[in-house]
Computed example of a mutant assay.
Amino acid sequence: MIWVIRLVLLVLIIFIIYRILVFLFHPRRKLELAREQQKFYFYDDADNVRKNFLLTHKGVIFEGEKYLGATKDTFDVVTISIGPQHVMSLKGFVREDFQEIEQKIHEHYPKAIIDWKSPVKEFLYSAK
């Protein structure tokens, strides 16, 4: 009887340690941590084109929608529509910040054309 209790306790301890490790290394948690520290972090499931990606830059979270299309050689992500989750958090952003975000996106999706959502689109194209 005592060995059953020990076995159950051992399994329970292993399960708790596993859940703690899963929590600590989950990419969504890393995204929130990067947002709080105002660092850049790119969270994406590159294998799943239907799933949107999230990125954070200077404490602002952006969501990008990927669209699959044909290129010269292959089917790949050809268009990305991106915008901030909360427009009010863009205070203090300059054009260089958006250009830096575009460069980081092009590192992951080099053939994609980036289409910014409103109001970023108006801001970027107002003084060109």
Rank of each mutant, 00 (worst) to 15 (best):
M1G: 14
M1Y: 11
R6W: 12
V8Y: 08
L10K: 05
V11H: 01
L12K: 00
L12I: 06
F15T: 15
Y18E: 03
Y18D: 05
I20W: 08
V22T: 01
F23A: 04
R29W: 12
R29T: 14
K30G: 00
K30R: 07
E32A: 03
L33H: 11
L33M: 12
R35K: 15
Q37R: 14
Q38Y: 09
F40H: 04
Y41A: 07
F42H: 01
D44Q: 02
D45I: 11
N48H: 10
N52R: 02
F53G: 00
L55H: 02
T56K: 04
V60L: 13
F62L: 08
K66S: 02
Y67W: 05
L68T: 03
G69Q: 07
G69N: 04
G69P: 03
A70I: 11
K72W: 14
V77A: 03
V78E: 02
T79R: 14
I80H: 03
S81N: 10
H86E: 14
S89W: 05
F93K: 01
R95N: 09
E96I: 13
E96H: 12
F98R: 04
I101E: 00
I101C: 00
E107W: 10
H108K: 11
D115T: 09
S118Y: 13
F123R: 04
F123L: 12
S126M: 10
A127Y: 13
K128P: 13
K128M: 08
